[in-house]
């Protein structure tokens, strides 16, 4: 298969599908309500919803790697923290 060199697994494929889905949802959201919903959040940052998605994803990445580096707890704990963090970012930041 011509994509076999990329060493695909279903787990990583699922990860990328979720990222693409998130981006598609954001595009639809933007189409329905253009302008990006800019606001000044609690951190004093001026953000649009695209910025908030980026901050959520980047923060979630760090939450997961720090969880792996600092604790022996199961990784879904980090995922729960990341979801809570993303909700906070989308509502307040």
């Amino acid at each position: 298969m011509f994509l076999s060199w990329m060493a695909w697994t279903w787990q990583t494929a699922l990860f990328f599908i979720l990222i693409v889905l998130a981006l598609t949802c954001m595009a639809i959201w933007e189409y329905k309500s253009p302008g990006g919903g800019p606001r000044d959040g609690v951190l004093g940052l001026h953000t649009t919803r695209g910025d908030r998605l980026f901050i959520s994803l980047l923060g979630s990445g760090f939450i997961h790697i720090f969880w792996l580096g600092l604790t022996d707890l199961p990784l879904w704990g980090a995922s729960i923290v990341a979801v809570v963090y993303a909700i906070f970012v989308f509502r307040k930041v």
Partner: peptide, 20 residues
């Protein structure tokens, strides 16, 4: 595409011959 490949590599082990 290279970044996606890196993500795929990061959860696997290989000893060459495109076996993961």
């Amino acid at each position: 595409i290279p970044l996606m490949t890196v993500v795929n590599y990061s959860v696997q082990e290989t000893f060459g011959d495109n076996l993961f």
